[in-house]
Nucleic acid binder design. Structure first.
Lengths: 158, 158
DNA sequence: TTTTACTGGTTGCGCAAGCAAGCTTTGGGT
DNA sequence: ACCCAAAGCTTGCTTGCGCAACCAGTAAAA
């Protein structure tokens, strides 16, 4: 399970800001963006994931994996986006259990329309406060952490 | 409002992992910790904040500020912790509107009991995957970002 | 072929969190 | 002395989210 000694000064100086970012960033991003575009950050993430997929099509479970959300959440978000005409849900021909979500033209248009607003929020919240050097040095560290978190779920306990 | 050009490769390589961390880390931390200690990460944060305050006492609004949570959330969390005997709420003598939350002995004991579990989760989720070098280089960047996020709330729009 | 186990998704439910509107106490004006 | 604005919470309501239980289709065993 690793080392159980207390966090040292540098670890603390990494951990506390990270915690703070985790609570503060979502709020900083969400509100204005929703007001400006009618899309949740989550909605946006789903649309992005679809837009980048071949055929703009992805399995529901694939969406869950690429966005990092739970299956149940994705299921509901996709339902909602379907109701709003931004994605379409097609039962998979090859496997009757599975569904694919497809980005509609309206969805793509909406995504493109939202992009500037998203960009503005991200720059205002994050990149306007960091130097190129910051981004270059911290990026890989964040990437390692993200990969580890994705890989961890299979119980690491007992 | 800053630069509105699209994110470049390095910015993207910073941003996507960060998003991922924000969604995945809370879950990685929360569940086991709650099961092991009966405390939410939020509860824990409140207890920590109190334990570090002089007299182990903090205004409700001070707690909101130091934890980064909304006033309404803190209000309810403190109520809950009070009901559980881990903190005590005292109306402030000097100002009848204000309340102070004080960490009780039981609360301190609970906090100390929870510490090893918290430590284990944090190490397993985060530090076990990073080198000392990672932590040293990325820490300050995260700190800058956290500070900026705290400072931003006063409308940055229009 | 029928039963059994598994996989992919959906739904019921509960919890965390925030916003907005409320209440109470303060601290000025007048 | 009185009113009025603001400070400091609190409470009602809505929303995002995940888990656990569930249903439907598939694949494997008997």
């Amino acid at each position: 399970m690793g080392d159980l000694s207390a966090l040292d000064a540098e670890e603390t100086a990494f951990w506390r800001p990270l915690m703070r970012i985790m609570t503060a960033l979502p709020r900083a991003l969400e509100d204005q963006f929703l007001a400006e575009t009618g899309l949740t950050i989550t909605d946006y993430g789903v649309l992005v994931a679809l837009s980048e997929a071949p055929e703009r099509l992805l399995r529901i479970s694939g969406l869950a994996a690429t966005t990092g959300l739970s299956l149940s959440r994705i299921s509901r978000v996709v339902d909602d986006l379907t109701r709003r005409g931004l994605v379409e849900k097609r039962r998979c021909a090859a496997d009757g259990r599975a569904s694919n979500a497809v980005l509609t033209e309206a969805g793509l248009a909406r995504l493109e329309a939202a992009y500037p607003s998203h960009l503005a929020r991200v720059r205002a919240s994050v990149f306007d406060h960091l130097s190129a050097e910051d981004i270059r040095t911290a990026g890989p560290v964040l990437a390692r952490l993200a990969v580890a978190l994705d890989a961890t779920p299979p119980t690491d306990d007992c």
